[in-house]
Amino acid sequence: MAERPEALPPLEWIRVYEAAARLGSFTAAAAELGLTQAAVSQRIRNLELRIGAQLFDRQARGVTLSTQGEAWLPHVQAALGQLAHSTANLFAAPRRKITIAASASIIELWIVPRLAMIGRVLPQLQLSFETIQRLPDYSRSEADFEIRFGEGNWPELEARRLFTEELAPVASPALLDTARGDWQSLPRIAVSGPRIGWRDWTAAMAAPPSPVPLLRFDTFVQSLRAAEAGAGVLLGSLALCREVLAAGRLVRMDDQALRMEAGYWITWPRSRPRFAERQALLDSLTSGGAD
């Protein structure tokens, strides 16, 4: 007969501790778990009494992890993650439909080229896409996954980098021929939004001031099509330009690339239950992307 393991504290108490430690607040943990602040405080106190250690330092303005509480946290998170992962793999019902919210550019230029791979890995999965036009649209979205631009630190969201964002000037070969190899004099194409622009490029590369862009688009895919049509030089996302560069419809004007700290991330709520297909889907969507 297997030896009986030492009695562990109730799993609920440990989950409450993990949430409070991760969020840095009993109040925030209560909101996430659907408990009162008093209930969170009581469960953590019970846990401290059971294990014989103080996990949080109580202060007038809130709580902070004690040295022991901070040391235990990664072990608890690893154990809870393993438990959730094995539960999903063994018992979760297969997901037949998943909705992804993203910009039109990301859907067309990054996700569509990976649909065949996703279909091979998850042949029974039905994917539905919701186009995000403006930032406030995220607040109204009920998608399973959202693809956002930023630094990957949204409250209450898990995030995985979709790809590393590197920018470089690109243009059509025909347009470059008209300049006889001197692309600096060619017209510029700009894109509205959070990406670095031409002024940032010239400053980072110590390049001559660039002409004022005469064309500006509010989606990257529109600006890309304009560049393919020979309308000007685009400061393009190399990840999103990969196919047109490989096909020779655009060529790079400069061997240097400007790497951004911010980028595109696929996100989902931390509180949402795992499902068996999630890891395979994430792996497919980030294939060939992030370093």
Rank of each mutant, 00 (worst) to 15 (best):
L175V: 11
L186D: 11
A276S: 13
A239S: 15
I111H: 01
A93P: 04
A19N: 09
L285Y: 07
P194L: 12
S41V: 04
E48N: 05
R45I: 01
F149M: 03
T219I: 00
A226Q: 03
M260L: 15
L109H: 03
Q126D: 13
A190M: 04
H85D: 12
R148D: 07
L258Y: 13
P194Q: 07
R272H: 00
T202E: 10
R216C: 06
E48F: 06
P113K: 00
R61H: 06
I107H: 12
A174Q: 15
T27K: 15
S141V: 13
S41F: 06
R249D: 12
S139N: 03
D291Q: 06
L55E: 08
A171K: 05
A227C: 08
Q184I: 01
A231Q: 15
N46C: 07
G232I: 10
P209D: 13
A179G: 08
L115S: 06
A227L: 00
A171I: 13
A88E: 01
A227M: 09
E228A: 03
P273V: 11
N46H: 15
M260S: 14
Q256S: 13
E32M: 14
E108D: 07
P5D: 01
T27R: 15
W198A: 03
G230N: 12
G152Y: 02
S210W: 11
I189E: 03
Q37T: 08
P9E: 06
F217R: 04
D137K: 11
N153M: 13
P169D: 08
L215C: 02
A231F: 07
E277G: 10
V63F: 07
Q126H: 12
V112S: 07
G34P: 05
E228C: 14
K97I: 15
I98T: 13
D137N: 14
P9A: 08
G236I: 00
L258H: 14
T64F: 14
L167Q: 10
L162D: 04
S141D: 10
R259S: 14
L186F: 12
A60T: 06
V112N: 09
R4D: 04
T87D: 11
G34F: 05
S139K: 14
F163K: 02
R43V: 01
L109R: 13
L235H: 03
S223H: 00
L122V: 11
L49K: 15
I100G: 01
R199M: 07
S223L: 01
I266H: 02
V16P: 01
V121S: 11
P123H: 11
A7M: 10
A29C: 10
T202W: 01
A116V: 08
A7H: 06
